[in-house]
Design a protein around this nucleic acid. Structure first.
Lengths: 94, 94
DNA sequence: TCTATATTTAGAAATATTTCTAAATAGTTT
DNA sequence: AAACTATTTAGAAATATTTCTAAATATAGA
Protein backbone atom coordinates (compact mmCIF):
# COMPACT_ATOMS: atom_id res chain seq x y z
CA UNK A 1 0.00 0.00 0.00
CA UNK A 2 1.01 3.58 0.49
CA UNK A 3 3.94 5.10 2.29
CA UNK A 4 1.69 6.59 4.98
CA UNK A 5 0.21 3.16 5.73
CA UNK A 6 3.67 1.83 6.48
CA UNK A 7 4.28 4.53 9.08
CA UNK A 8 0.85 3.91 10.59
CA UNK A 9 1.47 0.18 10.72
CA UNK A 10 4.78 0.73 12.49
CA UNK A 11 3.25 3.08 15.05
CA UNK A 12 1.70 0.31 17.15
CA UNK A 13 3.87 -1.59 19.68
CA UNK A 14 2.05 -4.89 19.17
CA UNK A 15 2.63 -4.74 15.43
CA UNK A 16 6.29 -3.87 15.90
CA UNK A 17 6.64 -6.87 18.20
CA UNK A 18 4.97 -9.12 15.62
CA UNK A 19 7.50 -7.97 13.04
CA UNK A 20 10.40 -8.64 15.39
CA UNK A 21 9.08 -12.12 16.14
CA UNK A 22 8.85 -12.83 12.41
CA UNK A 23 12.54 -12.00 11.93
CA UNK A 24 13.32 -15.54 13.04
CA UNK A 25 11.09 -17.00 10.35
CA UNK A 26 7.49 -17.32 9.24
CA UNK A 27 4.83 -18.37 11.74
CA UNK A 28 1.16 -19.23 11.52
CA UNK A 29 -1.43 -16.77 12.79
CA UNK A 30 -2.06 -19.03 15.77
CA UNK A 31 1.63 -19.29 16.64
CA UNK A 32 1.93 -15.52 16.52
CA UNK A 33 -1.19 -15.09 18.66
CA UNK A 34 0.31 -17.54 21.17
CA UNK A 35 3.07 -15.04 21.91
CA UNK A 36 0.59 -12.41 23.05
CA UNK A 37 -1.91 -12.08 25.83
CA UNK A 38 -4.64 -11.19 23.35
CA UNK A 39 -7.30 -13.00 21.41
CA UNK A 40 -6.60 -14.46 17.98
CA UNK A 41 -9.12 -12.04 16.55
CA UNK A 42 -7.10 -9.08 17.76
CA UNK A 43 -3.88 -10.47 16.34
CA UNK A 44 -5.69 -11.15 13.09
CA UNK A 45 -6.66 -7.49 13.00
CA UNK A 46 -3.05 -6.41 13.49
CA UNK A 47 -1.85 -8.84 10.84
CA UNK A 48 -4.36 -7.39 8.38
CA UNK A 49 -2.87 -3.94 8.93
CA UNK A 50 0.68 -5.23 8.49
CA UNK A 51 -0.48 -6.99 5.33
CA UNK A 52 -2.11 -3.85 3.93
CA UNK A 53 1.15 -2.01 4.61
CA UNK A 54 2.96 -4.80 2.75
CA UNK A 55 5.17 -5.45 5.76
CA UNK A 56 4.15 -9.10 5.87
CA UNK A 57 3.23 -11.66 3.24
CA UNK A 58 0.90 -14.57 3.82
CA UNK A 59 1.14 -18.15 2.60
CA UNK A 60 -1.70 -20.59 3.07
CA UNK A 61 -0.75 -24.17 3.92
CA UNK A 62 -3.45 -26.63 4.92
CA UNK A 63 -5.79 -24.78 7.23
CA UNK A 64 -2.99 -22.57 8.49
CA UNK A 65 -2.00 -19.13 7.31
CA UNK A 66 1.71 -18.42 7.62
CA UNK A 67 2.97 -14.89 7.88
CA UNK A 68 6.46 -13.85 6.90
CA UNK A 69 8.34 -10.56 6.91
CA UNK A 70 8.54 -8.43 3.82
CA UNK A 71 11.05 -5.68 4.45
CA UNK A 72 11.28 -4.26 0.94
CA UNK A 73 8.95 -1.47 1.95
CA UNK A 74 11.16 -0.57 4.91
CA UNK A 75 13.72 0.92 2.50
CA UNK A 76 11.30 3.73 1.71
CA UNK A 77 10.93 4.62 5.36
CA UNK A 78 14.67 4.60 5.84
CA UNK A 79 15.11 6.81 2.80
CA UNK A 80 12.62 9.28 4.20
CA UNK A 81 14.43 9.30 7.54
CA UNK A 82 17.76 9.82 5.78
CA UNK A 83 16.35 12.80 3.93
CA UNK A 84 15.15 14.19 7.21
CA UNK A 85 18.59 13.91 8.73
CA UNK A 86 20.60 14.84 5.67
CA UNK A 87 18.54 17.82 4.69
CA UNK A 88 19.14 19.71 7.91
CA UNK A 89 21.02 22.92 7.03
CA UNK A 90 22.23 23.35 10.60
CA UNK A 91 23.95 19.96 10.44
CA UNK A 92 25.83 21.03 7.33
CA UNK A 93 27.31 23.98 9.18
CA UNK A 94 29.02 21.70 11.73
CA UNK B 1 10.84 10.77 25.42
CA UNK B 2 10.46 7.11 24.65
CA UNK B 3 11.14 5.15 21.51
CA UNK B 4 7.41 4.40 21.03
CA UNK B 5 6.59 8.12 21.14
CA UNK B 6 8.92 8.75 18.24
CA UNK B 7 7.10 6.20 16.08
CA UNK B 8 3.75 7.65 17.12
CA UNK B 9 4.92 11.16 16.33
CA UNK B 10 6.08 10.06 12.88
CA UNK B 11 2.80 8.30 12.11
CA UNK B 12 0.90 11.48 11.29
CA UNK B 13 1.24 13.08 7.83
CA UNK B 14 0.94 16.64 9.12
CA UNK B 15 3.76 16.07 11.60
CA UNK B 16 5.95 14.48 8.93
CA UNK B 17 5.37 17.51 6.73
CA UNK B 18 6.28 19.85 9.57
CA UNK B 19 9.57 17.97 9.99
CA UNK B 20 10.29 18.20 6.27
CA UNK B 21 9.60 21.93 6.28
CA UNK B 22 11.99 22.38 9.20
CA UNK B 23 14.82 20.75 7.25
CA UNK B 24 15.42 24.12 5.61
CA UNK B 25 15.84 25.80 8.95
CA UNK B 26 14.00 26.79 12.11
CA UNK B 27 10.69 28.60 11.86
CA UNK B 28 8.32 30.20 14.33
CA UNK B 29 5.07 28.46 15.26
CA UNK B 30 3.16 31.03 13.21
CA UNK B 31 5.35 30.57 10.15
CA UNK B 32 4.84 26.82 10.34
CA UNK B 33 1.09 27.22 10.78
CA UNK B 34 1.08 29.48 7.72
CA UNK B 35 2.07 26.52 5.56
CA UNK B 36 -1.04 24.58 6.53
CA UNK B 37 -4.74 25.03 6.07
CA UNK B 38 -5.32 24.54 9.80
CA UNK B 39 -5.59 26.73 12.86
CA UNK B 40 -2.55 27.72 14.86
CA UNK B 41 -3.98 25.79 17.78
CA UNK B 42 -3.92 22.57 15.79
CA UNK B 43 -0.35 23.11 14.67
CA UNK B 44 0.59 23.93 18.25
CA UNK B 45 -0.85 20.55 19.24
CA UNK B 46 1.23 18.76 16.61
CA UNK B 47 4.35 20.67 17.64
CA UNK B 48 3.80 19.60 21.24
CA UNK B 49 3.80 15.96 20.15
CA UNK B 50 6.95 16.42 18.09
CA UNK B 51 8.53 18.15 21.06
CA UNK B 52 7.57 15.34 23.44
CA UNK B 53 9.11 12.89 20.98
CA UNK B 54 12.23 15.07 20.98
CA UNK B 55 12.03 15.46 17.22
CA UNK B 56 11.99 19.25 17.49
CA UNK B 57 13.56 21.74 19.88
CA UNK B 58 12.11 25.12 20.72
CA UNK B 59 13.85 28.47 21.19
CA UNK B 60 11.97 31.47 22.49
CA UNK B 61 12.85 34.81 20.96
CA UNK B 62 10.73 37.87 21.77
CA UNK B 63 7.15 36.76 21.63
CA UNK B 64 7.94 34.10 19.04
CA UNK B 65 8.70 30.44 19.57
CA UNK B 66 11.05 28.99 17.00
CA UNK B 67 11.07 25.31 16.27
CA UNK B 68 14.03 23.45 14.85
CA UNK B 69 14.69 19.86 13.88
CA UNK B 70 16.40 17.49 16.26
CA UNK B 71 17.23 14.33 14.39
CA UNK B 72 19.37 12.62 17.02
CA UNK B 73 16.41 10.48 17.97
CA UNK B 74 15.93 9.35 14.38
CA UNK B 75 19.03 7.16 14.68
CA UNK B 76 17.17 4.87 17.07
CA UNK B 77 14.35 4.37 14.61
CA UNK B 78 16.78 3.64 11.81
CA UNK B 79 18.60 1.15 14.02
CA UNK B 80 15.35 -0.62 14.76
CA UNK B 81 14.50 -0.75 11.05
CA UNK B 82 17.97 -2.10 10.27
CA UNK B 83 17.50 -4.86 12.82
CA UNK B 84 14.19 -5.67 11.22
CA UNK B 85 15.80 -6.00 7.83
CA UNK B 86 19.04 -7.59 8.91
CA UNK B 87 17.56 -10.15 11.20
CA UNK B 88 15.51 -11.83 8.51
CA UNK B 89 16.81 -15.42 8.18
CA UNK B 90 15.28 -15.78 4.72
CA UNK B 91 17.35 -12.84 3.47
CA UNK B 92 20.53 -14.50 4.66
CA UNK B 93 19.81 -17.54 2.49
CA UNK B 94 19.91 -15.43 -0.69
C1' DT C 1 -0.30 50.69 31.74
C1' DC C 2 -2.97 49.54 27.74
C1' DT C 3 -3.22 47.43 23.41
C1' DA C 4 -1.59 44.43 19.96
C1' DT C 5 0.65 40.14 18.42
C1' DA C 6 2.14 35.22 19.06
C1' DT C 7 1.36 31.06 21.04
C1' DT C 8 -0.65 27.69 24.07
C1' DT C 9 -4.36 25.59 26.77
C1' DA C 10 -9.16 23.98 27.66
C1' DG C 11 -13.13 21.88 26.29
C1' DA C 12 -15.86 19.77 22.96
C1' DA C 13 -17.09 17.31 18.60
C1' DA C 14 -15.87 14.09 15.02
C1' DT C 15 -13.32 10.37 13.72
C1' DA C 16 -10.09 6.55 14.21
C1' DT C 17 -8.00 2.79 16.75
C1' DT C 18 -7.74 -1.10 19.66
C1' DT C 19 -9.79 -4.74 21.81
C1' DC C 20 -13.30 -8.05 22.94
C1' DT C 21 -17.08 -11.77 22.12
C1' DA C 22 -19.69 -14.29 19.06
C1' DA C 23 -20.49 -15.83 14.60
C1' DA C 24 -18.86 -16.98 9.98
C1' DT C 25 -15.61 -19.08 6.76
C1' DA C 26 -12.24 -22.33 5.14
C1' DG C 27 -9.83 -26.33 5.03
C1' DT C 28 -8.96 -31.25 7.41
C1' DT C 29 -9.86 -35.62 8.92
C1' DT C 30 -12.64 -39.40 9.89
C1' DA D 1 -21.20 -35.51 5.26
C1' DA D 2 -20.04 -34.40 10.07
C1' DA D 3 -17.03 -32.87 13.40
C1' DC D 4 -12.84 -30.49 14.23
C1' DT D 5 -9.17 -26.93 13.92
C1' DA D 6 -7.48 -22.41 12.32
C1' DT D 7 -8.46 -18.02 11.03
C1' DT D 8 -11.20 -14.06 9.79
C1' DT D 9 -15.21 -11.00 10.01
C1' DA D 10 -18.95 -8.34 12.32
C1' DG D 11 -20.50 -5.59 15.76
C1' DA D 12 -19.87 -3.22 19.88
C1' DA D 13 -17.40 -0.91 23.75
C1' DA D 14 -13.50 1.66 25.43
C1' DT D 15 -10.00 4.63 24.44
C1' DA D 16 -7.14 7.72 21.66
C1' DT D 17 -6.47 11.13 18.09
C1' DT D 18 -7.34 15.09 15.42
C1' DT D 19 -9.45 19.25 14.82
C1' DC D 20 -12.05 23.30 16.00
C1' DT D 21 -13.49 27.66 18.77
C1' DA D 22 -12.86 30.42 22.60
C1' DA D 23 -10.22 31.74 26.37
C1' DA D 24 -5.75 32.23 28.67
C1' DT D 25 -0.85 33.44 28.78
C1' DA D 26 3.29 35.81 27.46
C1' DT D 27 5.85 39.31 25.43
C1' DA D 28 6.34 43.82 22.88
C1' DG D 29 5.60 48.46 21.89
C1' DA D 30 3.10 52.85 22.23
Amino acid sequence: MAFADTFKALSDPVRREILMILRHGSLSAGEIAGQFDMTGATISYHLSILKKADLVRETKVKNYVYYGLNTSVVEEIMLWLSELKGGNEDDKKV
